[in-house]
Simulated assay, not measured.
Amino acid sequence: MFDIDGVYNSQNDRIWAVNRLEADIKGGTRQKRKFPQKVMVWLGVCSKGVSPLIFFEKGTVDHDRYIKEVLPVALKFGNDMFGNDWIFQQDGAKPHTHAKSQEWCTKSFPSFIDKSHWPPNSPDLNPLDYCIWNEFAQLIEWDAVTSKTTLITALKCAVRKISQDVVFESCSSWTNRLYRLSQDKGNYLR
């Protein structure tokens, strides 16, 4: 989810400082509108690049929207990148784990890691979570964002600037991260 006030994740964003003044100088205090204009996006990533962005300007994404609007794009992107030899991985969001979504994925993708074979909360194993979303947000020209229209334009520009080297390295580290996670009995990576 992106809004015109920028990206801020109260669960994950932290400012380390000696006192409140130093924290504010480092960006600790942010003014946010009460109801900023926002847009939800979906993005896929693989070692060869990033997928097209999918925008959800209105409403929420349930399994029906996910099946109709996202999964066909993911399938085309994967097939264009790898032919018929690739595995689709997704996180544990409700639209992803819904029985109909799981069924669609099982029937449509060349190979698919279903919800019973993937940890439900696994940000350490998702290149989007541990690397790409941050890279993407840093490339957005936030000073130009004043409305939903300019936000969408900025998102489209920023996604084209994501470095192929960053994408490749984040995906390359995946097997190492998987191994480290298995050695640490599933605890978060430090």
Rank of each mutant, 00 (worst) to 15 (best):
M1H: 07
D3W: 12
D5G: 06
V7K: 14
V7M: 14
V7S: 08
S10C: 13
Q11E: 10
N12S: 07
R14I: 13
I15V: 05
V18R: 07
V18L: 13
N19H: 05
R20D: 15
A23E: 06
D24G: 01
D24W: 15
D24V: 15
G27W: 10
G27V: 02
T29N: 08
T29D: 09
R30M: 15
R30P: 07
Q31C: 12
K32E: 10
F35T: 15
F35Q: 08
P36W: 08
P36T: 03
P36C: 01
M40R: 02
L43W: 09
G44A: 02
V45C: 08
V45S: 02
V45G: 01
V45F: 04
S47M: 12
G49M: 14
S51A: 05
L53R: 05
L53I: 13
L53P: 02
L53C: 04
F55V: 01
F56W: 11
E57N: 02
G59R: 01
T60A: 11
H63D: 12
D64M: 13
I67E: 05
I67L: 04
K68L: 15
K68F: 08
E69H: 03
V70R: 02
V70P: 03
P72V: 04
V73G: 01
L75M: 10
F77V: 00
F77R: 09
F82Y: 03
G83E: 11
N84Q: 09
N84W: 14
D85T: 00
Q90P: 00
G92D: 09
H96V: 03
T97E: 09
T97D: 14
A99K: 11
A99Q: 12
S101D: 09
S101A: 10
Q102H: 08
W104R: 04
C105D: 06
K107Q: 15
K107S: 11
K107A: 11
S108H: 14
S108M: 11
F109E: 11
P110S: 04
P110H: 00
F112Q: 04
S116M: 13
H117T: 13
H117G: 11
W118F: 12
P120G: 03
P123C: 08
D124R: 00
D124G: 03
L125H: 00
L125A: 04
D129R: 00
D129S: 00
Y130K: 04
Y130M: 05
Y130N: 02
I132A: 03
N134I: 01
N134P: 02
E135M: 06
F136Y: 14
F136K: 00
Q138M: 14
L139Y: 07
V145R: 01
T149M: 11
T150D: 10
T150I: 01
T150A: 06
T153L: 13
T153D: 14
A154G: 04
A154K: 00
L155Q: 05
K156C: 07
C157M: 14
C157T: 07
C157R: 06
I162Q: 09
D165A: 14
V166Q: 10
V166L: 10
V167M: 13
V167N: 01
E169N: 13
C171M: 15
S172E: 13
W174S: 09
T175A: 15
N176C: 09
R177K: 12
L178T: 11
L178C: 11
L178D: 08
Y179H: 12
R180S: 10
R180C: 11
L181W: 14
Q183H: 07
D184F: 10
G186A: 03
G186F: 08
N187V: 09
N187K: 14
N187E: 11
N187A: 12
L189A: 06
L189M: 04
R190E: 14
